[in-house]
C-alpha cells in the first residue's frame, strides 16, 4: 500500500545483455519468471516505486548498441533504445514527421527526453503517451522479436488497454518502422495539459495529404480520451477527397466528439475533453494543411497549452 520513492525497495536480479541475441535468449529463459525490460526507466522505475509492481528479473536494454539507432533514409526506422532527444536531432523528423517532432518536444522536460524512449512510451501503454497518436497518424509499425521469430504489428493494434499490450513475456520491441510520408503531406500534434510540463488531458495528431484544394488522405488520432489511442475514422472519411473548406472543417469538428467518446478522470472531465476535441481538431487540421506544401515550421514551443 505505502510507496517509497526514495529507494527502490523491490529486490531483483539484473541482466545487462550486450547484444540483441543475448537479450532474446534471456527473455526466452526467464519468460515465466516475472522478467521485465528496462529502457529509460522513466515509466518502469516510477511504477516500481509507486505501485505494486514487483519484478524478479530486470533486463537493461541500453547496453545493446545495435538497438540504439535511427535511420531516416527510407521512411523512419527507430531503434528501441534511442532516447527521444537523439531522435529529434534528425532534420527529417522536424520537416517530414512534424507531428512526431512536436509530440516528442511536448514530453516532460529535457532530462526525461534524454532518458526516455519511444519503445518505452509504447511498452508502457499509457493512454496519455504523446508519441503514440503521432506515430499512429503516420501508420507506424512495430517490429516485435522473440528468440524464434519476428512479427510486425501496426502500432494502433498493439494496445489492449491501459498498461496492456499484446506483447508476450518473451518478446521485445526492437524497432519502430514508419513508412515514408507521401509528398504534399503536412502534420501537426497538439496537446492540452493543466500546466505546460504535464501529461496530456487530451492530445491529438493529424496528418493530411493534399491534392490541390482537396484533402487526398488524412489521419486523425486522439490520445488520452479513452483506454487506448483512438482513430477518428468516420471523421477521416468525411474529409477524404473533399476540398478542405472552413465549413467542412467545422462539420468534422462537430462530429468528432461523438466519435471519440472521452472519459472523466483526475486531469479533466469528459465535458471539457469534448469541447477541446473540437477546437483541437480545427487547429490541427489548419496547421497540418498549412504545412502540406511549405517547409514545415513546427511549433518549437512544444509542451501543452
Amino acid at each position: 500500500m505505502h510507496t517509497n520513492t526514495r529507494i527502490l525497495a523491490n529486490k531483483f536480479e539484473y541482466f545487462a545483455p550486450k547484444s540483441l541475441a543475448e537479450a532474446l535468449n534471456l527473455l526466452e529463459q526467464y519468460q515465466e519468471k516475472n522478467i521485465k525490460v528496462l529502457a529509460g526507466g522513466t515509466d518502469l522505475l516510477v511504477k516500481m516505486k509507486t505501485v505494486d509492481l514487483n519484478v524478479d528479473y530486470l533486463m537493461y536494454l541500453k547496453d545493446i548498441a545495435e538497438l540504439n539507432f535511427i535511420n531516416t533514409s527510407n521512411g523512419l526506422s527507430i531503434g528501441a533504445t534511442i532516447p527521444f532527444s537523439h531522435i529529434v536531432k534528425e532534420d527529417r523528423i522536424k520537416t517530414e514527421y512534424t507531428a512526431l517532432y512536436e509530440a516528442i518536444q511536448a514530453i516532460a522536460a529535457p532530462a526525461i527526453r534524454n532518458m526516455g524512449t519511444i519503445a518505452g512510451n509504447i511498452g508502457n501503454a499509457s493512454p496519455a503517451a504523446d508519441t503514440v497518436p503521432a506515430l499512429v497518424a503516420f501508420d507506424a509499425q512495430v517490429l516485435i522479436e522473440n528468440k524464434q521469430s519476428k512479427r510486425t504489428v501496426l502500432l494502433k493494434d498493439i494496445f489492449l488497454g491501459p498498461g496492456k499490450t499484446l506483447l508476450r513475456p518473451d518478446e521485445l520491441i526492437t524497432r519502430i518502422e514508419v513508412p515514408q510520408v507521401k509528398p504534399n503531406t503536412g502534420s501537426a500534434f497538439i496537446k492540452k495539459s493543466r500546466v505546460k510540463a504535464d501529461l496530456a488531458k487530451i492530445n491529438l495528431a493529424v496528418a493530411v495529404q493534399r491534392n490541390g484544394q482537396n484533402c487526398e488522405d488524412c489521419k486523425i488520432v486522439f490520445g488520452s480520451v479513452a483506454a487506448t489511442v483512438v482513430r477518428a475514422e468516420n471523421t477521416e472519411k468525411l474529409l477524404k477527397g473533399k476540398a478542405l473548406t472552413e465549413e467542412l472543417i467545422s462539420q468534422a469538428a462537430q462530429g468528432v466528439a461523438d466519435e471519440i467518446k472521452p472519459i472523466d478522470d483526475i486531469r479533466s472531465t469528459a465535458e471539457y475533453r469534448i469541447a477541446m476535441s473540437r477546437e483541437m481538431l480545427r487547429d490541427a487540421l489548419n496547421l497540418a494543411w498549412a504545412r502540406t506544401y511549405s517547409e514545415a515550421k513546427p511549433n518549437l514551443k512544444g509542451g501543452g497549452e
Binding site: L8, Y14, A16, G40, G41, V46, P110, A111, N114, M115
Partner: peptide, 19 residues
C-alpha cells in the same frame, strides 16, 4: 536530482546505479 551522465542531463532518482 539532475546530474550529467556522459554529458547529458539525467535524473538520478530514476537511474539504477549499476547502469
Amino acid at each position: 536530482c539532475t546530474v550529467f551522465l556522459d554529458d547529458e542531463l539525467v535524473l538520478a532518482c530514476l537511474i539504477l546505479a549499476v547502469t
